[in-house]
Amino acid sequence: MDSKLSTLDPLNPRPLEPSLPKLETRNSKLETQNLNVFYGNFQAVKSVSIAFPCKAITAIIGPSGCGKSTLLRSLNRMNELVDGARIKGTILLDGSDIYRLSVLELRKRVGMVFQRPNAFPLPVFDNIAYGPRIHGTNNGSELQAIVERCLRSVHMWDEVKDKLNDSALRLTDEQRQRLCIARMLAVEPEVLLMDEPCSALDPIATLRIEDLMRSLKEKYCIVIVTHNMQQAARVSDYTGFMLLGVLKEFGTTKQIFTTPRETDTENYISGRFG
């Protein structure tokens, strides 16, 4: 395990090696230290230490079943919904343990978009106003402003401004996924977790969501899980490669895709397994 972790040293909070100058932990928004996640006796994530920088997109790639979703869902404690799931290790948000926050506060600050667009069976407006409402904003004009702002940031205000009272289920898959992103933005999160957000979308819609992610990067720390390597290469600044629960390699996306240090990584990105 030590030998594997040595490639990650630049990310660890303590020893700061200058070898990867862009990856300073000083500006890491969210990080895990020796994170282990279990489902009953099965260990799905093994000693993962990874830091996600601010204002950047970090992609987690790896074959299906390697623990990407599990890692992501432990970051906002969504894995607790699974009976028998537990974690060992440390997760830090802005340098302080996420378990020191209430789970509600944590999820507010660390938002999540799911694989299948899960817009609520409610009107478009109510979908976006949902977050602000549960967190205590009930003023009509305030909500109106939030809804417009969030729909604008996902570039769909013009498309749906006349359909705010229609059920969100009438929208296309892409629109619903955008809506889910807008709904998440409405609670003003700091980190955006996206679990294969494009896997239910066609290639054109995928490219447009990727554009959206690039524009959101200006303000947020974004973590995207994908098993689509082209997507990771296109959209992310940093990439982590996972295999069987272990974070095999982490680096800038350019480095991972051009000069991977691990043979497993090389095999995976050259399509030899997965």
Binding site: F114, R116, N118, Y130, I134, C180
Partner: peptide, 27 residues
Amino acid sequence: VPPLYKEGSLALGATRWQTLHRVVLPA
């Protein structure tokens, strides 16, 4: 009611009760 809706609500920082009466019940 698809668990997806429930997860979506909880992930926004809603309590279980809020999730139940604002998402699950209407659905």
